[in-house]
Design a protein around this nucleic acid. Structure first.
Length: 483
RNA sequence: GGCCUCAUCGUCUAGCCCGGUCCAGGACGUCGCCCUCUCACGGCGAAAACAUGGGUCCGAAUCCCAUUGAGGCUACCA
């Protein structure tokens, strides 16, 4: 049974890279008919951020991911929060000491800091010097009994360690390049390395799919599995998501652009986000690019994951989002747009049927939030018109006024307020060919929107409705008459 | 400094494992044309890449080595 997990730390918002890692885990599990588990790695007491866990889970749900086991839904392998599993890690750490695979270390952070500094100065590898490695059992027991603070470190054996990574292939390192990793901190909390290995084993995780930044510590994890007498799971290390400078996307360098939440707030659709994210480091066999989560759950393959990092290209995200906005059922899009319309027009928008407006806007929206700028004309009480604005390039105000009057008269006659009818009505005016299309349509469109750039005249008039259209046309005539 | 990883159009990538069908395919972006009252949408088209140097081979984007470049890790953070 394939069982994978996404294990975020509640130290901030859900990161774009984290979201992609979660997505890949989910897709692999679904494709394999396996299970997806959420585990919370809150072993860093100092970096804990309240509310972070809830927002991370919310972000995953927004993407459409679901999990079989996790802190919110429970499961038979819980608890799924590491701070609630402390005794398990402590026991395993002591067991390792007993077996001779780990040892107590009493070195202070100060000494460790100085050691590192001097190693750096001498351009030596920065590794623990094993000062506490040969302490005899009695001394250790005595110092522990005295209540001295101690960590437990993994004793890295000689030789080499290797494993096969599902995306990178064979990874082989000489053990003497590895540090004696702290497994249990002096506050009794485990480090990531211990907690992760213990939990993945106990929770029956079959595949560890995580970011590439873990690749260098994977051999230590393999050694830990061996020391514990456990069979290591399969590993798959995903390439990083990069910024324009090709550096790993990070809060410090890239600000809020690294949070999934940011895109959610800006009006990106989860379908677009999923589609964009999945292609950032994975590619199907053919040239298709548009996929639903359900489709991806059928065809996702770890074998086709890229080895090199991928730049987060927001232009492509924009394209996906526009595509999905165009594909969305009209009623649904209109629903999603309501909060934005209300930002323009307050609660009044809630009383209007904006379906037609939505239909007119849909091919122009990149994000839902774009509607705020683009729907202004629809809700405007009075447009700021001038004769100059109402006159198309190369024409005259007099001609604009003539067009205006003719259009008003003709549109007033229209019975069924449909786009084809509107087109016919306008065509009738110009049967003699006295106006160019621009001379006729520009003044009308501007009268209705007050803008040099807007959707099509007929669409605008259709969305506005007959009464509002005629009302605006009359107002524009007054503006031109005042000339 | 040490260790690890990676390297095809500006970007995401197909092809690489199983060398010839690749004077390298798709998408985003860019540019041009068409549609057109404006803005979008849509349609058509164009420019644009195998990091470098060695090998192996009749033949290399594909295999090997080196170089260069990029990234990651190097905490009692994850």
């Amino acid at each position: 049974m394939v069982r994978v997990r996404f294990a975020p730390s509640p130290t901030g918002e859900l990161h774009i890279g984290g979201a992609r890692t979660a997505l890949y885990n989910y897709l692999f599990a679904k494709q394999q008919g396996g299970q997806f588990i959420i585990r919370i790695e809150d072993t860093d007491q100092e970096r804990f951020v309240a509310g972070s866990l809830e927002r991370i889970l919310q972000g995953l749900k927004w993407l459409g991911l679901t999990w079989e086991e996790g802190p919110d839904v429970g499961g038979s392998n819980g608890p799924y929060v590491q701070s609630e599993r402390l005794s398990i890690y402590q026991e395993q750490a002591r067991e390792l000491v007993k077996k001779g695979s780990a040892y107590y270390c009493f070195c202070s952070t100060e000494r460790l800091g100085e050691l590192r500094k001097s190693q750096e100065a001498q351009k030596l590898p920065t590794r623990y010097d094993r000062a506490c490695f040969n302490l005899d059992a009695e001394e250790v027991a005595a110092r522990l009994a005295r209540g001295e603070k101690a960590t437990i470190r993994l004793k890295i054996p000689g030789g080499t360690t290797q494993f096969t990574d599902l995306v990178h292939g064979l990874i082989k390192v000489a053990n003497n390049t590895l540090d004696d990793q702290v497994l249990l901190k002096s506050d009794g909390f485990p480090t990531y390395h211990l907690a992760c290995v213990v939990d993945d084993h106990l929770m029956g995780i079959s595949h560890i799919i995580r970011g590439e930044e873990w690749l260098p510590s994977a051999p230590k994890h393999v050694i830990l599995y061996q020391a514990l007498g456990w069979e290591p799971p399969q590993f798959a290390h995903l390439p990083n998501v990069l910024n324009e400078q090709r550096a790993k996307l990070s809060k410090r360098k890239d600000g809020e652009a690294v949070w999934l939440q940011t895109y959610q707030n800006q009006g990106y659709l989860p379908q677009a986000m999923v589609n964009f994210l999945v292609l950032l480091g994975w590619h199907p066999q053919d040239d298709r690019e548009i996929f639903s989560l359900a489709e991806l759950s059928q065809i996702f393959e770890l074998e086709r994951v890229q080895k090199g990092g991928a730049i987060f290209n927001f232009r492509k995200l924009n394209w996906f989002n526009a595509e999905y906005i165009k594909k969305l059922p009209l009623v649904e899009l209109n629903q999603l747009l309501q909060p934005y319309y209300q930002k323009i027009n307050g609660a009044e928008a809630a009383n209007k049927d904006t379906t037609k407006l939505t239909e007119v806007l849909r091919s122009r929206l990149v994000t839902l939030a774009d509607s705020i700028e683009q729907a202004g004309w629809y809700f405007a009480q009075e447009l700021a018109l001038t004769p100059d604005l109402l006159t198309t390039k190369g024409s005259t105000a007099a001609k604009a006024k003539a067009a205006q009057l003719a259009a008003t008269a003709s549109l007033a006659e229209v019975g069924e307020w449909q786009i084809t009818e509107l087109k016919q009505a306008m065509a009738k005016i110009n049967s003699a060919g006295e106006f160019t299309r621009g001379e006729l349509l520009w003044p009308v469109r501007v009268a209705l929107t007050g803008q040099r750039q807007s959707p099509d005249v007929f669409e605008v008039a259709w969305a506005l409705g007959k009464n509002e259209t005629l009302k605006r046309l009359n107002y524009a005539s007054k503006v031109l008459a005042a000339e």
